[in-house]
Design a protein around this nucleic acid. Structure first.
Lengths: 156, 156
DNA sequence: TCTCGAAATATGTATATACACTTATATGGG
DNA sequence: CCCATATAAGTGTATATACATATTTCGAGA
């Protein structure tokens, strides 16, 4: 019975292995650190990283229904609704009823395009930091773990 | 002037390139999808994915100060405070004053260990789904983009 | 001893996320 | 035409995240 795996299931070595290998934890950790970097660098534009992404999608696909935009960005529809409310209050997107009046069509406004143009060079800088590993200190050394994540999350 | 990159900065091709390559967007998207999968599979244990991760860290490192635990998990200290409040209200962790009474020491409770033991096989299943690509449908096809993420976020 | 600055943590506010449920609208069958 | 059902979106509630600020406690001089 001393060798029954149940008795070692949660010893320190097992907990360490879980912490190191968990795809969800590693992804969330990397996303937190990366978002902090992008948010800080995007600050002069007044946009958060998430808002920048939604605006890009809205510019590309709009006018588009909320459900379609949620599907395209792999976001819960109700989450996108809240995110869109923030952007609408900032005047960066417009939400209008469609010909089917159940549908609400999302499109970017002129102010939204201007915000994107202001943010684009800042985004370039943040992206370059990541690509060049310059953000490593700020990212708390999480980047080196990403190769492990990818090995766990690869489909092929 | 027609060739000035400023005039093509935000055309559709540029927006598409931004959306495809943005490390922050791709990481957040993958984290959202992965978290939904883990949360659903962990549901019988009563733990969310984030709570599971914090509990594992608390079991490994506790008793530990809030600041130290935040550093270990690359979480904002104030974020961890809120997350710990939830776990404390569930009775899964204990928070006690240290000898330096500014410090609050976090440790896992007996109930916390039991929750972890209940969650562990469920976590195994979620992890296996990711590792085997079985979660691909649920993940909305985001996994195939992770190799691009890793190429952007690799430090070496 | 008495401050004053530093350190550890919590709180105020805002955004992001998602499940369960509700509301509004369209549509097909009677 | 009316209703049952399906579809699109919003709302209630809870957790997760983080910046700015406040609170509590410690410790090092004057």
């Amino acid at each position: 019975m001393a060798d029954d795996p149940k008795f070692t299931m949660l010893d320190d070595a097992r907990c360490k292995a879980i912490g190191r290998s968990c795809a969800c934890y590693n992804l969330r950790r990397a996303a937190r650190a990366t978002t902090r970097l992008y948010d800080e660098m995007l600050k002069p534009s007044g946009l958060r990283a998430t808002q920048f992404s939604v605006l890009v999608a809205a510019k590309l696909r709009g006018p588009v229904t909320v459900a379609k935009l949620a599907e395209l960005t792999v976001t819960e529809r109700t989450t996108l609704t809240r995110n869109l409310t923030v952007l609408k209050n900032k005047g960066l997107i417009r939400i209008e009823p469609g010909s089917d009046r159940r549908e609400h069509l999302v499109s970017i406004t002129e102010a939204g395009v201007e915000a994107l143009m202001a943010a684009e060079p800042l985004w370039e800088k943040a992206q370059a930091h990541i690509a060049n590993g310059l953000g490593e200190n700020r990212l708390g050394g999480v980047l080196k773990d990403l190769s492990e994540i990818i090995s766990l999350t690869r489909t092929t």
